[in-house]
Design a binder for these strands. Structure first.
Lengths: 195, 195, 195, 195
DNA sequence: AATGAATGAGAGTTCATTCAT
DNA sequence: AATGAATGAACTCTCATTCAT
């Protein structure tokens, strides 16, 4: 009846698959439209199986939270092998690439952002993320001035805030139009003197 | 002024009061937490009464949508009595003021923004709004260059996109910190040569 | 389709009917087998209607608790118009009658008794009931000795405890056989010198 | 004595341990709160292991039934080495001791008693037990009259019923207070002329 | 214009049970 | 002999919506 070759997935996969399905659902329908039964069905298991891996819907959401944050952190600049301004350029390129390859991530991030004001668990992690991001931007801007790869007087703190706000606004808030987004990021680079 | 001794409110008031309550609820709990019963209770009427004024929850939401858009449009620059750059400054000041005086508006706008990808009715109106906003910015920037109140070469289109993205990111996405927001807007003005 | 003449019951009736149905279910299937859907169906309404009157299953159970206690208290001797020994005889007759006419009451009382050790709300009310009962017995026994309608030395306290224990054991614990119960109560009266 | 180093228990032990755990759970939470997972966890095994030993929850309950009945029968008078009235006194002492040392037994007996009206298997065995008990009481009372160790006219049948009802009422139905129980049993003995 | 009462559909969660390993 | 993983069925509870009054 069931295909012989349908080998049972190792447990880690099931858990991950459920998170991925929930992630997908949130991107598509928002927290508002997240249904445990649909998530389970998307993975091809019973709802009870979902509760075997995640005791509650909230636990599943936390799983999605971790997953999304992990994906997002991959964009933050990490390699100090190049000049600060090149790192900044790399970061912007990374964001552009991520928006192109994983548009769902930003939909989910937007949902998490709005929810962060109501859910302390999300709030905590979400704020940490924004703090790290802003600090990284500020650090790179300051370093770029110090090593001369960026010139002119600037308030690194304020510019970091602007960068984060602009990227969030461009990536997380509809309407999403790839062309416009590229334009916006390019203009942001220009305003920083990177182009 | 209003008729004395617990007179029944005129229908327009009821309708508006319900929209206001729903608006408040969305700001506080998001679409996810919007309950018709709670909205009705906040106004002091029965749920059935809510459905007398709004045939469905969605109709109520559309009421909120209109209300929010109306509030928001008031910030857009309208009076051509001053120079273009002054109008831009005035717009930024207006946004700052609005964030300070009606923080709920931006919470609701954020919710509407995310919902706009799933709800065609919201999507339509929301996109219109952003288009109008961006066009206004582009127009003012172009005019400012033309009348000489802003100097230097610039791509008005790209800058308008950046302005809109940055303001949205700063005002609609948590975490909200007044000081940071002021800083961000100020930096945005600086990057445009307005300071 | 639905009978025109089926007039909607007044609200108090609905509430009472639900309690009665739950009472009946508990008598028949125990707390273990109490299902809100079945209770609602027995009254001929939707489960949601049950929750309209009782916010939770526990609230419904509390309704049953009150109902059972009220029924039970009607057996306790109240009229001091006769001699103490006659009042005792009357009480025993009342218990016998109640067991005959409302056997369900004792099934429910048994369930409540067992639950009383786990549910503080039930525990409180249940214990109160037994305390009142025992005190009433003790008072009547003492009075009967004082007014001479019962003779011989006796420890009213201990006898009251025995009376309550024996009646509970006979009425609340299966197997229930009417003949045996009558026999038991008769013997209890004999042991007190009432026969 | 037992094989060292976490040896797997012999099957009989496992089975008994599961029954003991279920017994304990029923005493604590009633049939209403009996969960196979909790029972298994208390023994330190998987739920599936429980089902290896007991094909169904009902089978486990039957195991508890047998265990409880076995424990309870140990109280019934068995040794005809003394006079009938001494055997009666011994029985009462045995009940008192059992209530003190194994209060859980009576909680479980109460649960079984209520369930006996719904579960034929329990009903059968439970009724048998009460019949045996009552018959033993009646026999001893008759014998005590015959051998002169108890005097006065008496209806052994009715007194046996009273004894069983009173002991059940005192031991199986809350509220349980050791002092009151001793008092009740003592009064019961007195009423039979045993004190 | 307003409501108390009622409901269908569906939500998240639980639980005894099964089965491949 | 034992288990991790999985499930169907059923549970209580919620919510937007309806309707007679």
């Amino acid at each position: 009846m069931s295909p012989r070759s349908a080998a049972p997935k190792p447990p880690a996969d099931r858990s991950q698959a459920l998170v991925a399905a929930a992630y997908h659902q949130i991107a598509q329908r928002g927290f508002e439209g997240l249904r445990t039964r649909v998530v389970a069905a998307e993975v091809g298991v019973n709802v009870a199986t979902l509760h075997y891996y995640f005791p509650s819907k909230e636990a599943l959401i936390r799983g999605v939270l971790n997953h999304a944050m992990q994906r997002f952190r991959s964009t933050l600049p990490a390699s100090p092998s190049s000049s600060a301004s090149d790192q900044l350029r790399g970061h912007f390129a990374g964001v552009r690439r991520l928006v192109r390859d994983e548009p769902e991530l930003f939909a989910v991030m937007g949902e998490l952002a709005l929810r962060s004001t109501r859910d302390p668990v999300i709030g905590e992690i979400y704020q940490q993320m924004t703090d790290v991001w802003r600090a990284a931007m500020r650090g790179l801007l300051a370093k770029a001035v110090a090593d001369g790869s960026l010139t002119g007087p600037r308030d690194a703190d304020a510019q970091a805030s602007l960068v984060v706000a602009a990227l969030m606004g461009a990536c997380m808030i509809p309407p999403f139009r790839p062309a416009r987004l590229r334009e916006t990021v390019a203009e942001l680079e220009r305003s920083l003197g990177l182009r």
